[in-house]
């Protein structure tokens, strides 16, 4: 135990100048801005960028204009790249902070950190539902998603391909499996929260087609959980 640099499990250290590790992503500690350079960065020293709504809207409409249906694929692939980078950074930040590899963090700390990271980056409130984990399916819910909020109104299906790509890669990196993620409900279409199902790529290969054909989140979940 590294009782010298932090108060953590098992150490009987009451030194008042040793920090007790908790919320790494508390906004006032995590977000830093430099007046001189006009830049934002994280407490780990990595660049952060404020993404204006106008840019997000521009990305959606620009991609649709330039690539039509392929916009979905482009967004998903961007999400995947983003997920890969975000996971790397998340793992690095937390393992530096807690002085142990990500895999050795207590589950509670890990999950809480993920929720707080999401929130502090301004991506909404994320919850992971483990109910179906034994059947190999995770349900992720994100409320107040900025990506859903700027979806152009003419889309009549969930368009969170960026987030779906991000989540797929994120959980793939975490579990070491090839996972896919499909958005099954969207705030942009009046749902209470954005719902995503995450499972192996093989089981979800029809996923987007199910969404296209108008199946609800519950119906898709039912299909995935059917034995065989």
């Amino acid at each position: 135990m590294n009782g010298t640099s932090s108060i953590s499990n098992g150490s009987v250290n009451f030194d008042p100048y040793t920090p007790v590790l908790a919320n790494y992503y508390a906004p006032s500690a995590y977000l830093r801005s430099d007046l001189e350079s006009g830049l934002l960065e994280s407490r780990h020293g990595e660049r952060l960028l404020a993404l204006p709504e106008a840019l997000l809207r521009g990305i959606y409409t620009g991609l649709e204009y330039e690539t039509g249906q392929a916009a979905r694929l482009v967004l998903r692939n961007c999400g995947r790249m983003w997920g890969k980078e975000f996971f790397r950074r998340f793992a690095q930040e937390l393992s530096d902070y807690y002085q142990k590899p990500l895999a050795e963090l207590e589950m509670g700390v890990f999950l809480q950190s993920l929720r707080q990271a999401w929130k502090t980056h301004g991506w909404g409130l994320i919850e992971i539902d483990w109910t179906y984990k034994d059947q190999g399916v995770l349900v992720v819910s994100i409320r107040h998603s900025p990506f859903a909020a700027v979806t152009p109104p003419h889309f009549k299906r969930p368009m969170g391909f960026l987030e779906a790509g991000l989540l797929a890669t994120w959980f793939s990196q975490l579990t070491g499996q090839d996972l896919l993620c499909v958005q099954t409900a969207s705030e942009a279409l009046g749902a209470e929260s954005n719902l995503f199902v995450v499972t192996t790529a093989a089981r979800l290969k029809e996923g987007e087609a199910w969404v296209d054909s108008g199946l609800s989140h519950e119906q898709i979940l039912e299909k995935l959980l059917q034995p065989g």
């Binding site: 908790a22 919320n23 508390a26 500690a29 509670g108 809480q112 929720r115």
Partner: peptide, 18 residues
């Protein structure tokens, strides 16, 4: 506000979780 941002949000989740 410090309490809410740095403490309550963190603790209430752990209290619930465990």
């Amino acid at each position: 506000n410090l309490l809410k941002e740095r403490l309550i949000e963190w603790m209430e989740e752990e209290v619930r979780l465990y």
